[in-house]
Write a protein that binds this DNA or RNA. Structure first.
Lengths: 133, 133
DNA sequence: AAATATTGTAAGTTGAAACTTACGTAAGTT
DNA sequence: AACTTACGTAAGTTTCAACTTACAATATTT
């Protein structure tokens, strides 16, 4: 039941979209307010087509909302698109914690059994130093 | 004020490390159990040096723990390294929600003033599912 | 309909990333 | 010491991403 970080399909698109600094800048730029493609381009030192291509990548990764107004296209960040990657990192994180917790419990049981006849009861307070918290 | 997705320095390294599918595969592979570099390499169809380079990238992004045992080097995922990116996505997400909530409240006030006698309450759509462990 | 404004798409260049093979290094073995 | 094992690093090649300029498409204006 391992949650695999590599599959999920759309993870790859989001991760790659976020890997480019320009795209992170663009995304930040349109997080608060929607902005036209041209206006976005005017904020950077690269050509307008370059920005347009970045927008395409972000849109393909479901990280942008697009709205057409007249001849312009207005873009806005769609943080919901980030949720999938975020949740994935979350699972990677929490499953690791769960694994460590389980290992600690098993270790505890092992210790309890071994020391039973020697020591009626050692309680739970004793330090068991192994593994990392 | 604005949490910028582009800065943070280490975000870039982590995002780029995660952008490569091979590295995501490797990371998944050593999430549950620590594994030697050679054993990791044996699971893929690429050369061992290629894997070694990927390990270097992951390690530079603080996504791996390395332990030397004899001539071997044992690697293990370090999900704590993901936390920074995860938190960042979190902030990007929640700040957007906060912004929307604020806008909705202002709009609500505006409506209340104008249509005080007409209506008292209408549906609100708040469906956020967030919370940190 | 022609002209203008705003954008996306195509084609080519450049630089970085992902590989390869060859070599160097440190620890374990005989 | 010489030999083997398990790696990393260097150097070179190929593949891919980020840009460029040139062109096509769609909406608005005259």
């Amino acid at each position: 039941m391992g949650t695999k970080l590599e599959d999920g399909g759309r993870i790859d698109g989001v991760a790659k979209a976020l890997a480019g600094e320009r795209r992170r800048q663009i995304l930040t730029l349109v997080r608060e307010e929607e902005m036209s493609a041209g206006e976005i381009a005017s904020r950077f030192d690269i050509s307008r087509p370059a920005v347009s291509q970045h927008l395409g990548v972000l849109r393909a990764a479901d990280l942008l909302d697009e709205r057409r107004e007249g001849a312009s296209r207005l873009y806005r960040a769609r943080p919901e698109g980030l949720a999938e990657l975020r949740d994935f990192l979350d699972r990677f994180w929490t499953e690791r914690l769960a694994r460590l917790k389980l290992a600690a419990e098993l270790e505890q049981q092992r210790r309890d059994k071994r020391g039973k006849r020697k020591n009626g009861n050692r309680g739970r307070g004793g330090d068991s130093r192994r593994g990392k918290p």
